[in-house]
């Protein structure tokens, strides 16, 4: 049996290599440039909101940062609803996935998508199909950090 398995693995490996050699690679340089430009632009816009909040509304850094997140999330939800965010994402890749706007997009898009399955199990449940894991791991990690701080550092 072993020899058949080994032979099978060899065929698979050879085929993988053949498939890899024929399949085109993503245009990484172009993708990276677009991701850099779009991601940078979103962050610069975030900086503008932060500065306005700080300078005109007398907010401290944390408050300004929160209001920046809320504003960007609002804009992203709106653009997603209008079908524009998807078009940006097609070109920008990680540039529009990694900023907080991408997180908002990952909540809005399944929520819209599953509307036809109802507002409870469709919108309400499916909303977190992508963002849920982010909250699970992010919040859990923050609790671990808090506990480590409490027991070992403080």
């Amino acid at each position: 049996m072993d020899s058949i398995d080994v032979k099978q693995k060899k065929i698979h490996k050879e085929y993988q290599d053949l498939a890899n050699s024929i399949s085109p690679k993503s245009n990484i340089i172009g993708n990276c440039i677009r991701a850099f430009l779009v991601g940078g632009t979103i962050c610069t816009f975030g900086q503008l909101i932060t500065n306005i909040a700080k300078n005109y509304y007398d907010m401290n850094t944390e408050e300004a940062s929160t209001i920046t997140s809320i504003s960007l999330i609002f804009i992203s939800a709106l653009l997603t609803g209008m079908g524009i965010y998807e078009k940006i994402g097609k070109r920008a890749g990680a540039g529009s996935v990694v900023p907080i706007t991408g997180f908002a997009n990952s909540i809005v898009s399944p929520a819209m998508e599953h509307k036809r399955e109802g507002y409870v199990m469709g919108v309400g449940a499916k909303m977190f199909s992508i963002a849920g894991p982010v909250l699970v791991y992010g919040i859990s990690a923050s609790v671990v950090v808090g506990l480590v701080n409490y027991f070992f550092i403080r």
Partner: peptide
């Protein structure tokens, strides 16, 4: 795959 409005890139394959 993904919801339609999700801004993801499709690879060339």
């Amino acid at each position: 795959r993904f919801p339609l409005e999700m801004g993801t890139q499709r690879p060339p394959t």
